[in-house]
Design a protein around this nucleic acid. Sequence first.
DNA 1: TTTTGAGATGGAATCGATTCCAGAACGGGT
DNA 2: ACCCGTTCTGGAATCGATTCCATCTCAAAA
Lengths: 338, 338
Amino acid sequence: MSKSTIYQIAEQVGVSASTVSRALSGNGYCGRRTKAKIMEAAKALNYAPDHAAKILKTRKTNKIIFAVPDICNPFYFDMINGINQVAEEYGYLLILYYTKHRLSEELKAIQNVKERVADGMIMVSFHFCEENISAINDLSAPVVLTNQYESPGGGDRFDYVYVDTFEGTKQGTKHLIGQGLKRIGFIGGSLSEQTGRQRFGGYREALLEAGLPYTEEHVIESDYTEKGGYLAAKRLLESNGRPHAIVAANDLMAIGVMHACEEAGLSIPEDMAVVGMDNLDVASRVHPKLTSVSLEQEDIGRRAAQILMDRLHGRAGYEKAVKIVPKLVVRQSSVRMH
Amino acid sequence: MSKSTIYQIAEQVGVSASTVSRALSGNGYCGRRTKAKIMEAAKALNYAPDHAAKILKTRKTNKIIFAVPDICNPFYFDMINGINQVAEEYGYLLILYYTKHRLSEELKAIQNVKERVADGMIMVSFHFCEENISAINDLSAPVVLTNQYESPGGGDRFDYVYVDTFEGTKQGTKHLIGQGLKRIGFIGGSLSEQTGRQRFGGYREALLEAGLPYTEEHVIESDYTEKGGYLAAKRLLESNGRPHAIVAANDLMAIGVMHACEEAGLSIPEDMAVVGMDNLDVASRVHPKLTSVSLEQEDIGRRAAQILMDRLHGRAGYEKAVKIVPKLVVRQSSVRMH
DNA sequence: TTTTGAGATGGAATCGATTCCAGAACGGGT
DNA sequence: ACCCGTTCTGGAATCGATTCCATCTCAAAA
C-alpha cells in the first residue's frame, strides 16, 4: 500500500491537518483522544512523513556532506568512520562526495551545500585556493576543512582540523633515539611539497634536540610507494656508516625498507630498526609488526564533525583550528628484545 | 551575500516566476533577451535553486542510500567505490547508512527510503528475515540487495547481486591442483554458517572433480582471523602426511598460515603453496605476495547500482538476480618457479 | 457568577520551485 | 488585411508539512 499524507489522515479522523501535524510531531497541543485516533489512522494509512516537505519548511536537511578526494584510499575510511559516529549521534545522515582531487569537483560539492542539499560540509581539500576559499566563505552553512591553514586575513568563515605530521616524525625519531640508536636515516617524500617538508622537519628537529649529528647522506627523497622505499633503503644500506634505524615518512615505504633489509640479510629490529607513518592495517600484519605513527584519522573525523555540529546548533566554545597530535604505535620493528 | 529565490529574480527582471523557472531549468519556452536578463540577475542575486523545493515538486531526490553493516571493513569500501562510479554517472549523490549488523538499523534505513530521503537503496543485509523483506516489499522505491537469496514465492519486489564464493574456493583449489599439487588442505570458517559451507563446498568439489581423495584431517574450521589461521595451520603442519598446499577461506587466515610456515621453516611456495580469499590490499604487500580470490566487490557495487538506475529510469532488460563470478589473482605464494 | 488562563483545534499563510492552462505577441503565408 | 501556428509570458494550483494566529471550550480561582 502506498504511503499517505497528513491531509488524508486529517480527513479520515475528521480533524484539520494542523492538528495532525501537531499530534505527529509533538510540537504544540493535542488532546489525548484525538492524538490516539490520529496515531491509529497514521498506521492504518501507512503514513510516513515526507522528507522534502519537512526540509522545505524547516530549512534543516539533517544531512552533512563529506567531500573526500579519494574514495579508494583507506586513510579516508577511518575519517568517514569518525565523522559518522558523531553525525549519527546527532541524527544526521552522511553524504559522501568524491572530489577526485579535482578543483571542479570541490566547487561542485560547495555548490551542493549552497543548494541546501546538506546543512554543512567537511572537506579534505587538495586545491586550497582563492576560488575555493571565497566560494566557501560565501556559504551560509558551516564548513570544516582538514587542511592545515593560516587564514591570512583571519576573516574566514570556516574551521579546520589537521594533524601535525611534523610532530609525528619527531615522535618516531625520538622513540628510536630513546632505544639508544644514534645513526638514524630518513626516507621521505619530495621536499618541494609541504607534506614532505613537514615530515622531514620533525625528524630533523628530533636529531637536533638530542644533539645528534645530521648526515645528509642518510636522508633520501622518495615517492611514498613501497618500491620507492625499497630502492631508497638499498641506497642507505650501501652508504658508509649505514644507519641502524630508519624513519620512513609512510608505511608503504617502511614496508619497502623491510624488504630491502630482509634481502640484505639484516634482521629487524636487531640490525635495523624501522618506524613508519600512517599506521595502516598492513602495519600490524607484516612480520615483524611495524612500529608506526598513527595520524589519528578517526579522531580527525570525529573532531571535525563535532565542530560542525557545534556550529549547526549554535553552540559556543568550539575552536576554529584544532591540531591533532599523532600517536606513536610501538610494535616489534623498532624494539630490541633483550 | 545570501542566496535568493526565483521570485526575487522575477521581481528584479520584471517577469513572472514561471518565466524565471523556465529560463533556468530549460523546460519550456523563454525568449532570448528575457533569458539573458534572467541569467544575469540570477548571477547578481547569488541565486542557487533550493533542493528541497525541487524535490517536493518533482518527487526526485537524486540520491541513493547504501546501507552497509560495517563502515570499518575495507571489503565494503570497494563496493562503495563501485556504487559511486555508477551513481555519479547518473548524477546521483550517495548517502552512507551504517547498519552495524543490526536489524533495527536496517529497518531505519528502509524507513528513510519510505520517507523519500532517497530514490532507492542498495543494502547488504545481515538480517534477512520476514520483517525486513516485507518492509522492503512495501516500499515503492527500488531496492537492490547483495545477498544471495531464493525468493520463495517469487513475488519479491527487490533485486539482488551476489558473489558465488563456492566458485571462488573452487577456482583457488583447481589452481593449486593445476600446479601439480595433490595434498591440499583447507582452513575455513564455521561450517554451521552458510558462508562457511559455501567456501568449503567449492574446495570439496574441486577435489572431487579432479578425482583427488578428501582427507577430513586436512580440513579445519577456524574463525577468519589471522591468529585463527595461524593456529589452524600449525595443526595442519603436524598432521601426518601434511598437505603441500592450503586454501584459506580468507586472506587474514592465509596470512596466519604464512606465518606458521615461516616459523616452521617451510618456504612458500616451494614447501607450501597458499591461496587466500578476498584479495585485500595486504595480499599484495606481504612477502611472498599472496595468491587470492578476489570477490570483485567493486563490480558488485557497480552492478547493483546499475540495476538500481535501470529501475529508477524504468528501463527494461535488467536481471533480477546477478551472480558475480570471483576472480583468482595469482601471485607468488602459489606458483613454484623453476 | 464572573474572570482567567491553559488546552485544544481550525484556517490560512508559508517554504521555493514546477507545470498546466489560457492568453498575448509575433511573423509568415495567403 | 486576415488567419494560423509558433513562441513567449503570467496566473494559479500544486507538492506536503509546519506554524502563527484566532477562536473556542472548560475547569479552577476569585
